[in-house]
Amino acid sequence: MSSLKTPPERPKRNVIPGFGLSMGVTLTMLSLIVLIPLASVPLVLRDYSLSEFWRVVTDKQTIATYKVSFSCAAAAAVINVFFGVLLAWVITRYKFPGRRILDGLIELPFALPTAVAGVALTTLYSDKGWIGYLFSKVGVKISYTPIGIKIAMIFIGIPFVVRSIQPVLEKLDPQYEEAAATLGASRARTFMSVVIPEILPAALTGFALAFSRAIGEYGSVVFIAGNIPYKTQITPLIIMNKLEQFNYPAAASIALVMIVFSFLVLFGINILQSKISEISRGS
């Protein structure tokens, strides 16, 4: 994913053995496990006319799933950037009891199986759950609504943002902030003009990773979403529904849209990131 270009290299004879073997194994396994399977998605659609493909991917119900997935993932990623910066800041800058546990817990969404997270969040935020009960008292339903989808997406995305920002904050010398403060800058101004520009590329990377994970996420979202067409049906779920109806070309068509979209997101973020690092280096 790095946008850094390697400098032109002088060809040099390498004395280390094993290039042929290791490259052969790498390419064979990559092709068998990833590339050939992925190529089967467009392959299945070879007998499918363009108008049929278009009808399936722009079907009203399918479009509704794009909207739900996209809007929930974007909202969750924005919230994650806010709390990600907060958590990374608190973990790197403050000393307090329980800091190490907090740091270790951040990784929980990576370690906990998504289905377990899904059933736990659904129960916790349902009308009978500990938190859902409190909200139902004031008339807010969380499980089986778009709010629930966002909660699951926040859960799954938070470590991406924290772990992107944390190393940058660790390297950022507090001296700069102190210098800005001694020069009379207010605390808010110091944060805005010294810290934010430094962590912006990392925050953006975290945003993109959390966003693209949330778009594709299934296990933690499926239970809490409730799969109500036009309301809480996410795109991975409609693919699953098409599969259950044995409508393979339709499933493959929507999958193709998702694959293209996730490649575009990664590509766009790569460009954005290299732009930002150019700007910060140039100034």
Partner: peptide, 29 residues
């Protein structure tokens, strides 16, 4: 090559399952 290796991270797990149905399932080649 490194980008290609990372592909599975950017793809929905549902699609990861789907590709194997499309290969080995009843309509698979």
């Amino acid at each position: 090559l490194t980008t290609l290796i990372d592909i599975p991270f950017s793809i929905s797990p549902i699609i990861a399952g789907l590709v194997f149905i499309l290969i080995f399932g009843r309509i698979g080649w």
